[in-house]
Design a protein around this nucleic acid. Structure first.
Length: 442
RNA sequence: GACCCCGUCGUCCAGCGGUUAGGACUCAGGCCUUUCAAGCCUGCAACACGGGUUCGAUCCCCGUCGGGGUCGCCA
């Protein structure tokens, strides 16, 4: 047996110039899975050297969305902007060694520090893409320190990764062309380079890189759309990676257990909202009412549900929570549990209230509900089924008009459960109102 | 344009020289049922093309075509 690899140190290094989007989130997730699966260390580094475009509020947002996704880090956040002093010494060393030179002064007399690049082939092995050769002469000299004194990206990246002891650089494959440059920097500085692993891009349905044009792509948007973090993590994990075989619904522990860079795909993947929504529905089904209520609460702020009691909310959720595809579906599907008058869906009325005997049936249903004593699900069902039997009609001929009267819609959870939760009084009110409606609109 | 990468159902994946090319999402039909959702069953649907190598290529090699990435003193 070969001896086990030492624990890896990886990092996720977002730039706070925009919201955290699914592409970045997936990169963070893969780093996290990799670290957690082999006892490694996950470092969060904020690449905020671009003072002009970096925003503190975005830094906070990125941090909180990562937490929402369930990703935690062991070190950081490390702010690149606060480590200015780290970059000059290595650059000066390269200058002294003659490996780097100063640019011609700009009009203001400032110079940049630039690494001299010799024309020679560069070969490296990417953990995902395999061996990659870049022929000599393709690379130009590399700017280390810009004329304004700040470190250029590739240099800052190499210095930081080295200084933080990063062993594996796992990032989007838009960085693949940067890799030879960084390798040259490591070589010039006499440092051991980390292992590089590049992740394929995530595309929109039109095969263009995912962007705002494709709708909700920020984590914030997914959260607000009622996607569960575990569902999103599971979906994202499978975008560009697979454990082999047919497994799809996988817990965090399973993902951590199975994840490996070798099984990451090299092919860009199209983000499929429908499949995410399906998967989210599966996760919702497996989530208990208590937790669903907790997840739902923030989405209910400023809606008519804001003031509903926790007990009532949980009761409603246990009745229809498992039917939701996203948490955001809740207000629409649960609307009829709110007090006050319900709206009748015209389609439902036309379909189920057009029969001649509907008024009679509803009247008998009303009596049957009154007669259920004690007020239990079993008694309600017995009582209502008795009406069906007595009239010799099909169950649907009673259930459907009743459903419209109580919910205003064609689809809903089971009628008996609804009556039970609504209570006798509300049920009675709604049936009376249905009767009035039918009298006015024969 | 140059350099690099990629190419299995519409989409996400499995496959790793011999398979009726498998699963999932979507879509269609059916079952169940008080409706819808869920669940279960069935169906539609793919190896980009052309050369090799081989007894045999989805799989290996070359080319073509197609897609993507990068070419800043941005990150």
């Amino acid at each position: 047996m070969s001896k086990p690899d030492p624990p890896p140190r990886v990092r996720f290094a977002p730039s706070p110039t925009g919201s955290l989007h699914v592409g970045g989130a997936r990169t963070a997730l893969f780093n996290w899975l990799f670290a957690r699966g082999r006892n490694g260390v996950f470092v969060l580094r904020i690449e905020d050297t671009d003072r002009r475009r970096s925003r503190e509020d975005l830094t906070r947002e990125i941090i909180s969305e990562l937490s929402w996704l369930g990703l935690d880090w062991d070190e950081g956040p490390v702010y690149q902007s606060r480590r200015g002093g780290l970059y000059l010494p290595p650059a000066e060393r390269l200058l002294e060694e003659g490996l780097a030179y100063r640019s011609d002064p700009d009009p203001e007399g400032r110079t940049a520090v630039i690494l001299r690049v010799e024309p020679e082939d560069i070969v490296f092995s990417d953990r995902v893409y395999g061996p990659i050769t870049v022929s000599g002469g393709e690379l130009k000299d590399i700017v280390l320190i810009k004329s304004d004194g700040s470190p250029a990206y590739n240099f800052a990246c190499a210095v930081d990764d080295h200084q933080l002891g990063i062993t594996h650089v796992i990032r989007g494959d838009d960085h693949l062309p940067n890799t030879p440059k960084q390798l040259l920097l490591y070589r010039a500085l006499g440092w051991n380079p980390p292992v590089f692993a590049h992740l394929p891009l995530i595309l929109g349905a039109d095969r263009a890189p995912l962007s705002k044009r494709h709708g909700a792509t920020s984590l914030k948007a997914f959260r607000e759309a009622g996607i569960l973090p575990d569902a999103l993590a599971n979906y994202l994990a499978l975008l560009g990676w697979s454990p082999g075989g047919d497994r799809e619904i996988m817990s965090r522990d399973q993902l951590v257990e199975e994840f490996s860079l070798e099984k990451v795909s090299r092919k860009a993947a199209v983000f499929d909202h429908q499949k995410l929504t399906w998967m989210n529905g599966r996760y919702i089904q497996e989530t208990g009412p208590e937790e669903l209520a907790r997840r739902l609460r923030p989405l209910l702020a400023e809606t008519e549900w804001e003031t509903v009691s926790p007990g009532k909310l949980e009761a409603v959720i246990s009745l229809l929570g498992h039917r939701l595809k996203t948490l955001a579906d809740f207000p629409d599907q649960a609307g009829f549990f709110r007090e006050g008058e319900i709206a009748y869906d015209p389609g439902a009325v036309a379909k189920h209230w057009s029969g001649e005997d509907v008024r009679e049936i509803l009247a008998e249903a009303r009596e049957a509900v009154e007669a259920a004593e004690p007020f239990t699900r079993e008694n309600l069902e017995d009582s209502l089924r008795a009406v069906i039997a007595r009239r010799g009609i099909k169950a649907g001929a009673l259930m459907q008009p009743l459903r419209v009267a109580l919910t205003g819609r064609k689809d809903s959870p089971g009628i008996f459960e609804i009556i039970l939760l609504l209570g006798r009084e509300t049920t009675r009110e709604r049936l009376d109102r249905a009767r009035e409606f039918l009298e006015k609109n024969p």
